[in-house]
Amino acid sequence: MAVSVTILVLIIALHLIAFVFAVGAERRRSEAKVVPDEYDDQTFCHYTTDASTVYGLSAVALLLLSHTVLNGVTRCLCCGKGLVSGCSATSAVISFILSWISFLAAEACLLAGSARNAYHTKYRGYFVNHDLSCATLRKGVFAAGAALTLLSMLTAILYYWAHSKADTGFWEKHHNEGLGLATQHHHQGPDSDKA
């Protein structure tokens, strides 16, 4: 199997768009401030926009789609006709494992960040009690997901390239075996026509 430019561009584009969404999620994560209630002497948490949850979940979906395309094309390294042993096959196996690790880590960061960002505490406090805590997402969770998305893209490209290189050897190794037998059968010499 040769490297398909279309598949490569699709994988890179999906990863880069997921990266942009993850960075957008980091920049737009919810913030909270303690606000006094206008009707009584209690305070409550007022949260800003919830856009980063949507951005984070969009990044999760795009990353999942990209990984599905990659593993569908390469048949997940286990359902194909096999790889030619050698340096390319070893690189394919190592990059396959690294691509899964970076993919799962990026998905975990983005999903955890989206879930935590969507969670808003409903605690109320009194004016005299200033220890009201408004739960928000820690800074850097979506940024870690964005960095892991780029790492996932690099390992996915390496895996696809190494798999394509190791996969093409099957045909090149065995395509002359049938021709050799057929050529020997037709070149038996002029004496074979007399018999």
Rank of each mutant, 00 (worst) to 15 (best):
T149Y: 01
L181I: 10
V93G: 15
I157K: 03
L63S: 03
A22H: 00
I17S: 05
H15K: 00
L57H: 05
I97D: 09
G125S: 09
C134P: 00
L111S: 14
D191K: 13
V54K: 10
K173C: 10
T90D: 11
G180L: 12
L137I: 07
N129K: 13
K165Y: 11
L151Y: 07
N176G: 14
H163N: 07
G72E: 04
S52A: 03
Q188I: 08
L137V: 07
L98K: 08
Q188K: 13
A112K: 10
G180H: 14
Q42V: 14
G178D: 10
T43S: 05
G178M: 13
A32E: 01
I97N: 12
V54W: 12
L8H: 05
A2L: 11
A182M: 05
A112R: 06
Y160T: 03
G86I: 03
R138Y: 15
G80Y: 06
H175N: 11
Y119I: 03
V69M: 06
L63R: 01
Y55A: 09
A51T: 08
G80V: 02
Y126M: 07
E26T: 04
C78H: 13
A2G: 14
G140A: 09
A92K: 02
A13W: 00
I94K: 05
L64V: 12
E177Y: 15
L65F: 10
